[in-house]
């Protein structure tokens, strides 16, 4: 089992030193005449004004919340799906119906969460400001 992950480690090593190698060899071929105007950040030719880290609004964050909750749900569903086929294709026993019920309960609860976010209009990207 460890041998497979040895392949993964080697691949990460090869990919990791692939980038610096290419950039290092390119360094001899590449011209390098940096002068100050060239090194300013690019703003369609205008003078860069102010600081780059401007304020965002919160809809990015509600998207990240939705993502992580459903990602965790997917991570938890993986084991159920692994044993679902062997359980179901064996025989039409009570066990398979129970397993199906557990699966539906788990997925149904989180579909409720998606419905909540949809009704509360958290899924819209441009939120119509509710004028109280």
């Amino acid at each position: 089992m460890l041998l497979d992950y040895f392949h993964v480690l080697m691949m990460i090593l090869v990919a990791g030193c692939f980038v610096p190698l290419i950039l290092f060899f390119g360094k001899f071929l590449r011209p390098s005449k940096p002068y100050s105007e060239k090194l300013t950040t690019y703003e369609c030719g205008e003078e860069p004004v102010g600081n780059a880290w401007i304020q965002f609004n919160l809809r990015f964050y509600s998207l990240a919340i939705l993502f992580i909750i459903f990602e965790v749900e997917i991570a938890l569903i993986f084991p159920v799906f692994l044993i679902y086929k062997d359980q179901v294709s064996a025989s039409f026993s009570l066990g398979s119906v129970l397993l199906f019920g557990e699966l539906i309960f788990f997925v149904g609860i989180l579909i409720l969460g998606l419905a909540y976010a949809w009704v509360k209009r958290d899924l819209d990207w441009i939120r119509s400001v509710r004028i109280q």
Binding site: V72, A75, L76
Partner: peptide, 20 residues
């Protein structure tokens, strides 16, 4: 360990919402 990861994800989501 699996359930710890699940709870850590839920906790991080709520805690960071509180911080914001």
């Amino acid at each position: 360990a699996l359930f710890i990861i699940v709870i850590a994800a839920a906790e991080a989501a709520v805690a960071l919402a509180l911080v914001l």
